[in-house]
Each structure stands twice: as C-alpha cells, then as structure tokens.
Amino acid sequence: MEQTVDAPKYAFPKSTLRRFRWIRRYGVLILMILPGVIYLLINNYLPMLGIIIAFKDVNYAKGILQSDWIGFKNFEFLFRTNDAYIITRNTILYNITFIVLHVIAAVTLAVLLNELKNRFLARFYQSVVLLPYLISAVIIGYLVFSLLSVETGIMNKKILPMLGLGEISWYTETKYWPYILTMVSVWKTAGHLCVIFLAAIVGIDKEYFEAATIDGASRWQQIRSITIPLITPVITIMTLLAIGRIFHSDFGLFYQVPLDSGPLLPVTNVIDTYVYRSLLTLGDIGMSSAAGVYQSVVGFLLVLISNYIVRKINSDNALF
C-alpha cells in the first residue's frame, strides 16, 4: 500500500525493445481508454477553445474569432462592487456547509440502511430517500412556497398559530434562509449521494466483519473501525471533486427555491445567480464566459492545493 507510483519507468521507454514490451503489456488497456479519451477530447477539450470568448468583445458580424480582444474587461462586472464579496462569501460558505453535511447525512443513511435486517424495507427506504432528487427545482420552489407563503402557507396558517406564534414574512426575512436552503439541499441530495456510499459499503470484503465479530467487536465498533475507514477513499474523492466545484452552485436551489425574492439576495445570491441576473437582458456571452473562467480557475487552484494535502497524507486517495 505504501508503494508509490512506479509509473515513470514505463512512461518514456529508453529502448524500442522496452517500448514493444510495454505496448504488449498495456496495449489492451490503452485501447479500452481510447473511446473515453477521444470523447473527452471532442466533447470537453475542443470546446475549451471557447474560453477565448471571455477575452473578446463579441461581435457576431465579425465572427467570434475575429472579434476584438479586450483583455479582462469582461471580468470587471464580477468585481466592481461589494457584491463581489457577498456572492463569493455566500458561494463558499454554502458549499463548505453542503460538502460536510451532505457527506455526513449520506454516510449515515448508507450505514444505517446496511444495518437493516429487513431487506425489503431497506430497499423501500432507499427508494423513498431518492425521491426528492427527482423533483425539478422549480417544482421544489412551488412546494416550499406552499409551506412558506404569507397568505396560504402551511407554516403561517397552521403551524405557527398552533405554537402561538405570529405570521412571518418568510420571503423578506434573510435570517431564516441559510437554514432553509441548507435543509432543502440536504433533503434533496442526501438520498442520492447515499447510493454511492452504500455501493462502497456493500463492496467491503465480508471477511473483515466476520473476523471482527469473532473477536467480539460490537456493530458500532465495526462501523467505526472497518466501515468508515474502508469507505474513506470514496469520501475523499467525493470531497475533492466537490472542492473543485466550490465556486459553482446548484442554480435551481439558489434561484428557484427562494423564488428570486429581492430582499433575500444578501443571503441567497451566489456567483451563478448573480451572473444570470446581471446578464439576463444584456445577453453578453463574453461576460458570462468570463464568469465561468473565473469560477473554474479558482476551483482549479483550490483542488490543486487540497489534492496536494491529500497526497501528503495518503497518496492512494489523491485524485492525480
């Protein structure tokens, strides 16, 4: 396990003889990766050329390639006001919260599902927790509205009076929304994510548990010292991947669920929604492209750093 990658000695074979051997050893594997690699080249890398749009004053009559270069002017709107601080803060804080809570909730669900003896019910629960993920964000927005509407909402009309509390104007009070959005996000994602961890748990070699049981370990001890450590690689990779997208957010959650309510913007505005709103009428593809580049570059740097740290701890868990 401690052995580091021995790749370099294969990478650039010194003699033709060795290259020949190398092809014979890995030729099939290379053929196997070809479809995926070609697909990514065409579907993902080729369009990356379009990043130039972020630095262009797009004029369709001239064509995109011939449009004038304008340096970083398209990026300006992202940093002009103190909105830049607010949207960046919101995006990062929400994402960090989500990354942590999603993993905790999903792992809990997965571990508990795996503990259940009644397989039929376990499967039933598993299907049910997936449901929220299947409902479109706009509809979730409707459903949340049916809870929180001032005039017809279940909260204001039924629950708050029952508790002897007065009406709350949910869609203008910023203080509730960090919690509401977090709850909705966990509600929506946990069941979906738990599938991954469940697959990881199911994949653990049962011999470990059998040995532990013979040694008299309790279930809880087994979970703590077998299950969790063995799914750590999966948790790590999921976290790393999420960090890469830390400047991106679930647009539907932040735009549709608060119903685009203006007074809530200080706590609901994230980079994606800010860009969307700014450019709705301007329709400037240069500016939206600039926002995408900014998000990607920051995510990239963060992931390089995190990956470096992970590699220091355990190189097998690192992304690359």
């Binding site: 995926g36 990514l40 579907n43 993902n44 890398y45 080729l46 369009p47 990356m48 050329l49 379009g50 990043i51 749009i53 995109i64 991947l241 890469g244 997208r245 593809i285 939206s288 492209s289 995408g292 580049v293 990607s296 995510g299 990239f300 992931v303 992304l319 690359f320």
Partner: peptide
Amino acid sequence: VFFTMLFNGGLVPT
C-alpha cells in the same frame, strides 16, 4: 479526466 470537471468552454463552443 478531472480537468474536464473544472473547465468547460461554455455553451457557445459546445
């Protein structure tokens, strides 16, 4: 592979 998760050229080139 990972790089494609971070960068995309946006809708227009795609």
